[in-house]
Design a protein around this nucleic acid. Structure first.
Lengths: 243, 243
DNA sequence: CGCTACATTGAATCGAGTCAACCGGGGTGG
DNA sequence: CCACCCCGGTTGACTCGATTCAATGTAGCG
C-alpha cells in the first residue's frame, strides 16, 4: 500500500535477489523489465486469481503476503503456501492453463504481472532466465516436500514451531527482524496450513508462551528463545534453507 | 526386467505419450533421442540416486516403479511420490544441484538417463520441449498440492481409498486393468506415504474388504465397487486427473 | 453502542498410534 | 529335507494427542 506510482523496475526492487532477476546480468534484467511492466495492487482479503481462472500471468510479489489455497471437490480447502515478497504465484497452472488454486492477499499487497507467453519467449532467448525459471520450479518442489514431511510425520507442536522458524528466517532474508514480527494470517489460516484446528493452534501459542520460547500478543510474535523453538521444531529449522 | 537390449528410443517407447516427448513433432523427438541415449536397469530395492548425490540427470521411468523419499535432519523419512512409467524423477534437485531426496526401485525397473545440461540446451532450441518441461514441473506442483490436501485434512480411510483410486487410474492410463493390480510397495511404504502407521493401513485393508469394496490378498488388489471406493475417498477420486 | 469476526479456554470424545503377540512364506544353513 | 529365522503382514488391547462442542473474551467497525 505504501508503493509510490513510479514505474515498476526490477533493478530497483528490494526483493530482486529473491525473485526472477536473481542471477541475471544488468542487460538481461533490462530485457526482463520489458515484460514485467505492469503492477497490480491487491487489498487485504481480495483474490489475485481464483480457481477456474484461465492462466495468463505469473505474479511476483512486491510487497505484502498471500495465501495459496487449493479447493477439493467437496469444497474443503487446504492452504499450501504462505507467500512473501520475491516469491512467484501461479506456477501450478501452467500445465492445465487453468488455475487449480486461488491466491488471496493477507494484507494490502502489490504484485508484478508476468505474462507467461512473453516470459516463455524471452526465456528461449536468455538462458540465464530459463535457468532461473527451472530453479524456481525446482525450489517450489523442494519446499513442498518439506511441508509433506511436516504434515505426514510431525506432532502439532513441532508443526507450529517449524512454521514460526520458517517465517522468522524468511523475514530475516528480507531484511526484517527474525525475532519480532507480525503474522499476517489468522489462527484459522495457520491451522489450515498445518493440518490442525484453530483451537489447537491457539493452545500451542499459549503453551509456547508459558514455556518462555515466544511472547505472543494477538498476531504480534516475539521469539525469546530461538534455540528452544528450534528444539521443538526438531532441528527441522524453518524446514531448512527456505527463502 | 523384460527389456530387450535394443537401443532406447522415445518413438517406440510405450509411455511416450506420458513422458517428455508428449507434444513434440517427430523431428523434435529425433533430436530429443540424441540426448536420451542411455538406459539403466535398477533392481528392486536399489537406489537410482541418493540424498547428497550431485545432480546430473533427470530420470524417465521406462518400466517398473519407484518411491521418492525425503529425509529429515533427524533421519526420519517421508515418501513424497510413488512414480510409475512415463514419470520423471529428480526435478527437485535442479536448484541446489544436489539431490535432497532419494529414489528407490520398488521392483526391477529401467530408466532413461536425461543429462540435464544437454536437455537444457536442447530446450533452448526447441520451444515445444521447453514447454513440456514447464508443463511437467507445473504438473508435479499440482500433484503435490493434492497430496497436501490429503495429509492435511483427510481421515485414514479417505487417504487409503484416494491412494487406491489414484493408482487404479494411473494404471488405466498405462493400459493396465484399473480393477485388478499388484501393489509394488509394502504396507509400511503406503503408511509412510499417507502419514499413517502400517497397522492402521493393514486394518483399513481388511475393513475395506469386509465392506466389499475391494478384495485383497497380500499385494494383489481387486476393486469390486469403484463407486463405493470413490465415496470413501470423498469424490477426491484419484486426486483428480492424475497421470 | 452493539455487532461481527477472531481468539482463547475448558471438558468430553474419538481416531489413530503404540506396544505386543501371532501368522505365514521364503530363504538359509545344518 | 527339515528346522529355523527373519521379515512383512495382521490382529488385539490400551493410550494419548488432537478434535469437537461449547462458553467466554476481545478488538475493530458501522
Amino acid at each position: 500500500m505504501a508503493d509510490s506510482p513510479v514505474a515498476v523496475s526490477c533493478s530497483n526492487c528490494s526483493v530482486r535477489r529473491l525473485c526472477l532477476p536473481a542471477g541475471l546480468s544488468l542487460a538481461e534484467i533490462d530485457r526482463l523489465e520489458q515484460v514485467t511492466g505492469k503492477k497490480k495492487v491487491i487489498k487485504a482479503g481480495e483474490s489475485l486469481y481464483r480457481a477456474g481462472d484461465s492462466f495468463q500471468n505469473l505474479y511476483a510479489i512486491r510487497s505484502g503476503s498471500f495465501k495459496n489455497v487449493v479447493i477439493a471437490a467437496d469444497g474443503d480447502t487446504q492452504i499450501t503456501h504462505f507467500a512473501l515478497p520475491g516469491e512467484l504465484l501461479g506456477l501450478d497452472a501452467y500445465s492445465t492453463r487453468v488455475h487449480s488454486s486461488y491466491a488471496e492477499a493477507l494484507e494490502d499487497s502489490s504484485v508484478c504481472l508476468l505474462p507467461f507467453a512473453q516470459l516463455e519467449v524471452l526465456a528461449q532467448q536468455v538462458p540465464a532466465l530459463q535457468q532461473q525459471i527451472y530453479s524456481i520450479f525446482s525450489e517450489e518442489l523442494r519446499k513442498e516436500n518439506e511441508i509433506l514431511m511436516l504434515l505426514g510425520k510431525r506432532s502439532a507442536d513441532t508443526r507450529l514451531a517449524a512454521l514460526l522458524m520458517n517465517i522468522s528466517s524468511r523475514y530475516a532474508c528480507r531484511g526484517y527482524s527474525p525475532n519480532e514480527f507480525i503474522l499476517s494470517m489468522s489462527r484459522t489460516d495457520i491451522a489450515n496450513y498445518l493440518g490442525l484446528t484453530a483451537e489447537t493452534v491457539s493452545r500451542l501459542f499459549t503453551r509456547f508462551q508459558k514455556q518462555g520460547v515466544i511472547q505472543v500478543n494477538g498476531r504480534v510474535v516475539q521469539i525469546q528463545n530461538l534455540l528452544g523453538l528450534s528444539e521443538i521444531a526438531g532441528t527441522h529449522c524453518g524446514y531448512e534453507g527456505e527463502v
